[in-house]
Structures are given as C-alpha cells and as structure tokens.
C-alpha cells in the first residue's frame, strides 16, 4: 500500500471521527459542569433524522445543522430540567431519553426513509491542500471536519485557559465554592448542558448530511454510535485532546480492521471492530485501579521504595472525573 493511499485513508479516519468528536466534546462540556448526559445514543439518531429532514424541507444544509443543534439542545434541556430543577437521577433520565429519542427518530423519520438529499461537499483549502502529505491529510476535508479540529483546540482553550472555562470547571468540581464566588451554579449548569447538548447534537447532521449521508431508519448504521461517543468521553478523561485521541483511535481501528481484512484471514472481522471497547475498559481500569482497596492492600506489602514508585505511577495515571458529576447542587 502506498504512502499516499495510507494518507488518504488516514484523512478518511479524520473525517469519520468528526461526529464522534462533536459528540464527545459536547458531552465533555456538559460533564465538566457536573451533568452526565446519557441520552447521546438516541440524541444522535434524532438529530441526524431531524437535521436531514430540515435540509430536505428547506434545501439548506446550514439549516440542517442548525436543526441538529437545536434538537440536541432541546433534549439536553429536558435532561437539565429533570435533573437540575427536579433533582432526578441524571443517569435514569438520560437513559430514558436515549431510548425515547431513538424510537422517536424512527417514528418521525419514516416518511423520509431513503430520500436523497444534499450532502456536505469537500472544501479544499487553497495552498494548504497542496502541501505534500499534510495537504492530503488535513486540508481536503469538509467544513465540519475543519470545525472539529477547531473544536478540539477551541474547547480546550476555553476550559483550561479562559475565565468562564475556569468557572465551568469550578461548578463541576465544587459547586458550593463556585457559588460563593458568584456563579449561579444551576443556571450555568443549564447553560452548559444545553450548549454541550447542542454541540453533541451536531454529530447527528454530520452523519446524515456528510459521513453517512441520508436517513435509512433502523439501517442507517447509527444506532450504537452514541454509546461509543460516551465511551470516548470517559476515555478522554474530560479533556478535549484526550477525547480527540480516543475518537481518532476508534476510527483508526475501524479503518485498520477493513484494511487488514485480507492480510489477516485468521482474525474474525469483528475483532478489530470491537477492539476499542476492551481498550476503553482497560483504560478505565488503569485509570481507576489505584483507588481500589485490594491494590492498597497489596501495595502495603511491598517494600518501601517499590511501593512509592508504584503509588506514584498510579497517581499519575489517575484521572478523576469532575467531583460533583451527577450530583445536584444545593446551597446548604
């Protein structure tokens, strides 16, 4: 396989990771504010259907994306209301929403089954697209893929470098302290849940208007993507760069699976497709294992020096979720 083919393949990996990125980064924003939005799987389907329907009805791709973001935000609003205002379990409400949205998308999407509509076109960036190697890889994508690059960097800067981002981390970490410093915690949680939901909602139209253009109901090949997105969010440790790594890894392994198919006849085709999941589980294992009681117990038996080294490694690996994730805020 020539280098060029590989580069083009990798460029495809970047494209197919774009919706995952929007989903995972949207979820990261929401979870950074302390709200787990488990509705992702159904939401992506509903947004994909809604976005596609909007584009079909209006002929405008932009409106399709807006519709996706709107629906994503709306679903997030329901979750926010149920979990922040009514203080119901985020996991329970999110889970119900994920099933509800899925069936809703199938029911409402029935009339537009298999319709052909406009599709996002590729946007070569002049000059940059001609850079050998990099040009093929990065600069012959569609606009949403470019936006996904910007999203990674932009959201990282927002979360870790800006003043509102600091506050965002604050409300997810210790809402009472953020409250004392002037944050209207619940209002901000609403805001970030909805914003995160809207960004994640864009993943839907990215599928239905670009990556897997069209709407085919149950055979759209989207059912399950949301769970993958959630897994990537966790894998990403609430950091856009790590989430990006997760999304790219997932797409890469998918691609690898089909590229290697003839080369590795002994390996069942399912192996590389599900590889990301054991990988995610292993990552979670490494990240969390330091907190386990039995680890502590076995560590206590180690000689002093070795123990310190292991403890240090485990601490370095440990990625903690936002401390207040999943818990409602109440000022005393």
């Amino acid at each position: 396989m020539s280098l060029d083919v590989i580069l083009v393949g990798l460029a495809g990996v970047l494209t197919s990771a774009a919706p995952l990125l929007f989903g995972a980064i949207g979820e990261t924003i929401s979870e950074r504010a302390g709200v787990t939005n488990l509705s992702m799987n159904g939401k992506i389907l509903l947004c994909a259907m809604g976005g596609f329907a909007a584009t079909l009805a209006t002929g405008s791709i932009v409106l399709g994306f807006l519709a996706g973001a709107f629906i994503g935000g709306l679903v997030a609003l329901v979750l926010a209301f149920a979990s922040i205002t009514l203080r119901q379990s985020q996991v329970a409400v999110g889970f119900v929403l994920t099933l509800l949205c899925r069936d809703l998308s199938y029911f409402l999407g029935n009339p537009i089954m298999g319709a052909t509509g406009p599709r996002l076109s590729t946007l070569r960036i002049p000059l940059l697209a001609d850079i050998p190697g990099l040009g093929v890889l990065l600069f012959r994508q569609d606009i949403m893929t470019y936006l996904s690059f910007l999203l990674i960097v932009g959201v990282w800067i927002f979360i870790f470098r800006t003043r509102p981002g600091l506050l965002l981390r604050g409300i997810g970490e210790r809402p009472s302290a953020a409250y004392v410093r002037g944050a209207n915690v619940n209002r901000l949680r609403y805001l970030y849940t909805i914003v995160g939901g809207a960004i994640a909602g864009l993943a839907g139209p990215i599928y239905s208007l670009s990556v897997k253009a069209g709407w085919k109901g149950t055979i759209s090949g989207l059912d399950g993507m949301g769970w993958i997105v959630l897994a990537i969010t966790i894998f990403g440790g609430w950091n856009p760069f790590r989430a990006a790594f997760g999304a790219y890894l997932f797409s890469f392994l998918q691609w690898l699976g089909l590229v290697l198919q003839p080369a590795l006849p002994g390996i069942p085709s399912q192996v590389l497709q599900v590889a990301p999941f054991p990988l995610m589980i292993l990552t979670l294992l490494f990240v969390n294992i330091g907190n386990a009681e039995w680890v502590e117990r076995s560590l206590a038996r180690l000689p002093e020096r070795g123990r310190k080294r292991v403890v240090k490694i485990l601490r370095a690996l440990n990625v903690k979720p936002p401390s207040a994730l999943g818990t409602p805020f109440e000022k005393e």
Binding site: V8, G9, G12, S16, G221, L258, S269, Q270, V274
Partner: peptide
C-alpha cells in the same frame, strides 16, 4: 466484507469507510 447486511456501529465495519478505502486506494 463488512460483516452484516448493513452497518452496526461497533460491531461491523462501516461500509462508508470500506467504500472510501476502495476509492482512496
């Protein structure tokens, strides 16, 4: 082969990706 008659994310290969890979190579 994608592994099924249509795409099941996380279980089958993605046919879009397969088609892309054909065209790219």
């Amino acid at each position: 082969w994608i592994g099924f008659w249509f795409n099941i994310p996380g279980v089958t290969s993605d046919p879009s990706q397969v088609a892309d890979d054909f065209f790219n190579s």
